[in-house]
């Protein structure tokens, strides 16, 4: 019932507003001729547009400085540093174009409003020289931006260095599962048909010797070593997800049936970032950036970037997913292997 009353009230208000507006239009028609009214309207509207322009510039300024402290801290990866630089170049370029075109738009609108002074406007139908200028100049600017973009794109998508840590991250509705290859630096094979939510969340092939020491973190927590390149092997168990790494300026889809990869070099540890952001609760987060169902917004993972020593200590405390017969021997072997430079057995 109340819904009808609400709709009826809205309708009534609109009707009253319309009647008032209608009356004011007729009253204006009685007071002045069509021409005088149009002249007055032109003046008011042109002025309002100019006011909009200046108010808009002020609002952009305000918006920018009030939100600045809420933006991401400086990039936490090498790749992201090039990203931030390129972003700045693009922002300045488009900012200049934005300002010039808008200044012209509102200036012309104000300056050339119809008045009694001018009878007819300037007949100016085409000019090839002008067209040529504003075809080639944007083309050249775009070429420069494309060049910068492709250079960065090639770097970001280039093959990962051979000494990169390999870590697998798999999405499922609605959390992330992280797998580390363990001491042998090789991830065991997996088959989606072997998945079992209780005993084998990733469908890891237990017959594969490489899977014996694999470590699985079901809480979506990923440990990385600062300064050490990491290669993510990205997969999905069900629908498409996306590994979003805003602090590292990277992102890659997790597609069922397809393995995607992404590599980067973290440069700032979590502890350092807490100081940089002056936020003791700071944490690198993995967001799911591809809609994956009703829990999409809660599909959160975290990344802990730490020093080699901290990482080794953490790794030593982890048990392989398939508990081995003699767990006591494992930690020693782990740290020994981590200390020697990684020669991946591929």
């Amino acid at each position: 019932m109340s819904i009808f009353i609400t709709v009826a009230i809205i309708f009534l208000v609109l009707m009253i507003v319309y009647q008032i507006a209608q009356a004011s239009e007729y009253a204006a028609a009685l007071r002045a001729t069509e021409k005088e009214r149009q002249k007055k309207t032109n003046y008011i509207m042109a002025s309002l547009l100019v006011a909009f322009f200046f108010f808009g510039l002020y609002a952009i300024w305000q918006c920018h400085f009030s939100l600045l402290d809420r933006m991401l801290p400086k990039s936490a990866s090498l790749q992201g540093e090039a990203y931030d630089m390129m972003f700045k170049v693009t922002l300045i370029t488009t900012g200049i174009v934005f300002f010039i075109t808008h200044a012209l738009l509102f200036w012309f609108a104000f300056k050339y409003k119809a008045t009694d002074d001018r009878k007819t406007s300037f007949f100016f139908a085409h000019n090839n020289k002008l067209e040529l200028i504003w075809t080639t100049v944007p083309a050249i600017v775009m070429a420069v931006l494309v060049a910068i973009g492709l250079r960065n794109w090639m770097t970001v998508t280039s093959p990962a260095p051979a000494d990169a840590h390999v870590i697998e991250i798999v999405g499922k509705q609605f959390n992330w599962i992280v797998r580390y290859p363990g001491t042998d630096k090789v991830l065991g094979k997996r088959n989606y048909r072997d998945i079992n939510d209780a005993t084998n969340v990733l469908g890891i092939d237990q017959k594969d010797p490489a899977s014996k020491d694999d470590i699985v973190a079901q809480n979506g927590e990923m440990h990385l070593v600062v300064g050490k390149p990491v290669k993510l092997i990205i997969g999905s168990r069900d629908v498409i997800h996306d590994v979003g790494l805003p602090h590292f300026r990277l992102k890659m889809d997790a597609v069922p049936g397809i393995t995607t990869t992404l590599w980067f070099t973290p440069t700032i540890t979590s502890a350092e970032m807490k100081e940089i952001t002056k936020n003791p609760n700071f944490v690198y987060e993995i967001s799911c950036d591809q809609m994956c169902g009703k829990g999409h917004y809660s599909m959160r993972g975290t990344i802990i970037v730490e020093t080699q020593a901290e990482y080794d200590k953490w790794l030593a405390s982890q048990a392989p997913y398939f508990a081995p017969a003699a767990p006591a021997a494992a930690p020693a072997a782990d740290s020994a292997a981590a200390a020697t430079p990684a020669v991946a057995v591929k």
Binding site: K113, R118, S121, T135
Partner: peptide, 23 residues
């Protein structure tokens, strides 16, 4: 695509330039 789009914008701006604009 930015190129034809830019051409359109500049042409619109030039269209209102020195016009007799009725708002």
């Amino acid at each position: 695509i930015a190129v034809p789009s830019a051409v359109k914008v500049f042409n619109w701006l030039t269209t209102i330039w020195r016009g007799n604009i009725r708002f």
